[in-house]
Structures are given as structure tokens and as C-alpha cells.
Simulated scan of single mutants.
Amino acid sequence: MGTEAVTSRKTLLPGYSFNAVGWLSLTVVAFWAVIAVIAPLITPHAVGDIVDMDYFGPLSREFPLGTDYLGRDMLSRILFGARYTVGISLAATLLACTTGVALGMAAAVTGGWFDAALSRFLDALNSIPSKLFGLVVVAGVGSSIPVLILTLSVIYIPGSYRFARALSVNVNTTDFVTVARLRGEGLPYLIRSEILPNIIGPVFADVGIRFVFIVLLLSGLSFLGLGVQPPNADWGALVRENIGGLPFGAPAVMAPSFAIASLTIAVNLLIDNLPRKIRDRSA
């Protein structure tokens, strides 16, 4: 019995382990996640304080990333900006994917007019360019954090819905779902116990992809002045604020750009290098 358990454990562990790239990308993602949580405790200066009389100040011991166009510490603003970039993007991703996956599974199991009507409505919503939709909504309603989260989630609900529905339609035709339906199980049971466990792996990977898209869209909206408003700023807003100083204050533009790139690239690499047994997990 003990030998069998050891053998089983040895065959399972490789499928659940990260490779070197996976560990590196996981470390970068975890780093920014921790920074987003503890930013108020570790920022050297308040984000709105003018701490240097020289705008676009050079790198120094006191200001490791220099200062911005008003003389504010860039390190403090980037650390605190992680709260907005990571927090808003994560909230919007969870809302979009939770709603999209739930609707996709319900449409696949229910079928009929509900599936057709919901699919056509979300196809129409998906046909609107995402950045244009975000610009119109945020410019019309105002740029508050709840509005940003809701707008970003609405933009990416259709994609999450289509992905979950395509997976659920295949699972819905299997014998065990047919047996459960013949037993008289209702929609909540079929979704919770039969459909979701069999699509959770691909859905998990899709959540990471949606997160990257939302980070980039949020940064784009902020670069256009419709993101987090001053004196607070996410990383996209930091690029916009300091773009005029690129010829003589490059760190103020390069540092937030690098932060955006490091987070999005790390999430992409993490998804690509997920352990096979997690990525392809099924019940």
C-alpha cells in the first residue's frame, strides 16, 4: 500500500510542478500583488507631496526613480499606483469572468430562445470597439473607480461568455450530464456539479488572459486622461503625466511603462507555463 502511494505521488507531482519560467513569472505576479496590498506602508513619501524643487529630477539615493513633472517621488507613485492598476483590473476581471462564465454555462445548458437571445445581445455588445466604448461611458458618466470597474467588466463579459459557452456546450452533450438531467436535476445542480468542474482549468487560464487585456485597456484609458484621477494615479496615468519630459526625464516615463510590461508579460508567461494538470484539469 505504501509503495503504491509513493508511486502514485511520483507520477502526479511532475504534472503539477512549474518550470523555471513559470516560477519566475509567478514571482513577478506575486511581487506586484503584495506591493498592491502593502503600498501605503512602504511608500517613502505621500503620493501627492512635492518633495523635490527640481522637476524631472535625476535618479539619486533619496529618489531611486527620480521625480516627476511636479517634483513628486516616482518610486512612491509607482508603488501606490500598483494598488489602482492591480486592484481595479483584478476586480473588473473577476466581475467579468464570473458573470460571463455563469451566463455561458446557463445558456449552454438551457439552450433554446434564452441561448439565442443572450448570444445575439452579447455579440452586438462585443462588436463595439472596446476602447471607444470605454471612452464614451467614462467620459459621459465620469471617471470614478466603481465606474471604471463596471465599464471594464462589461467590455469583457462577452468574450468570457463565448469562451465558457463553447466549453459548456461540449460538456453538456456527455453521458453523465444526460444521466443527471434524467434524474431530474435542475439547472443550478447541472452547472455547479457537472459543467463547472469540467471546464475550470481552461476558464482559469482565460481569467489570466482577460486580466492582461483589462490592465492594458485601463492603462490606455488612463493615458487618455479618463482613468484614475489626480492626485492619485495608476501606471497608465503616470506615463501620460510625464510623457512631455521624455527627452530629459526618461525615468519618469520608463519606470511606469516597465511596471505595466512586467506585470502583463509575467501573467502571460504564467498562463503559458501553468502545470499541465492544472491547465487541463477536468473532473
Rank of each mutant, 00 (worst) to 15 (best):
A139S: 11
K131E: 11
V147R: 00
I191P: 01
D175T: 15
Y161H: 11
A166L: 10
L122M: 12
T151P: 01
L196G: 06
P188C: 12
V136E: 07
V136D: 07
S193K: 07
L135K: 00
V137D: 00
G186K: 12
G186D: 05
L152Q: 02
R120P: 08
Y156C: 07
R192I: 14
L152I: 00
T178V: 14
L132Q: 04
N126D: 13
R120C: 13
S143F: 04
A139C: 05
E194L: 06
E194C: 06
E194S: 09
G134R: 00
A180R: 11
R192G: 14
F176N: 02
I128E: 12
R192P: 10
R181G: 11
G184W: 03
S127K: 07
R162K: 13
V169Y: 11
V154S: 06
R183N: 14
A164Q: 06
G186P: 08
F121N: 13
P197D: 07
I149V: 15
L182G: 15
D123P: 07
I155G: 01
N170H: 15
T178S: 15
I149L: 03
R165T: 01
T173D: 12
Y156D: 07
L125T: 07
S143K: 10
I145L: 11
S130L: 04
V136R: 02
D123W: 06
G184T: 09
Y161K: 06
N172P: 06
P129M: 05
T174W: 09
Y189C: 14
T178Y: 14
S168R: 05
V171Y: 01
V169W: 10
